[in-house]
């Protein structure tokens, strides 16, 4: 990733900065300049908004064939996370026991290294997710149950999933 592009994306990568449409109240992550639903009616009405940093896992997969730069982290977990504000986010789930990772699990955001441009290049920081320990629900009060489905792991989505961040529906 180019240094200017990474730099421009710092607010969304570090602080989950999204955009809210003033016309339809739709929330978009990554932030958009025009609401895809309201189009011209949204111009000048897209306001920055920070997601709360909590969510619920709606789908997840364990990656054994790593994306470049993630070789040392194999196997690692990537999940689709439903934010209470609306957007679906893609992110890596870290520091969580494999039995704690399931559809419906509550997660919260943490600040981590997400990559680097080689040993001499700039370090990319951003948001990853950890499963909330039982007894620590206080921080995830705001999270709705989400779209918990059958709890089965789905296959064949590794590539599509591993392109953070993903667009909101």
């Amino acid at each position: 990733m180019s240094v200017p592009r990474f730099w421009r994306e710092i607010p969304q990568r570090y602080n989950l900065q999204a955009a809210k449409c003033g016309a339809c109240e739709g929330v978009y992550f990554p932030p958009r300049e025009v609401c895809p639903a309201c189009r011209r009616a949204s111009i000048g009405k897209m306001a920055p908004m920070r997601l709360s940093g909590v969510g619920t896992i709606v789908e997840w997969t364990r990656v054994h064939k790593p994306a470049p730069g993630y070789e040392m982290q194999v196997p690692y977990t990537v999940a689709l996370i439903q934010a209470p504000e609306g957007p679906l986010l893609t992110g890596q789930v870290v520091d969580s026991a494999s039995e704690a990772i399931h559809v419906g699990a509550h997660v919260r955001s943490v600040f981590r290294r997400v990559g680097q441009d080689g040993e001499a290049g700039v370090i990319h920081y951003g948001t990853k997710w950890v499963v909330e320990a039982r007894g620590a629900e206080a921080r995830s009060d705001a999270v709705p149950t989400g779209k918990a489905t059958d709890g089965k792991r789905r296959k064949g989505r590794n590539k599509a999933l591993f392109q953070p961040p993903v667009r909101s529906p």
Binding site: M72, Q73, V94, F111, R112, R113, Y125
Partner: peptide, 16 residues
């Protein structure tokens, strides 16, 4: 530290 943790990430977590 985790594989993706360093002084910046630890500082940020404590600071937050």
């Amino acid at each position: 530290p985790g594989l993706d943790e360093d002084v910046a990430t630890i500082s940020v977590e404590a600071a937050r």
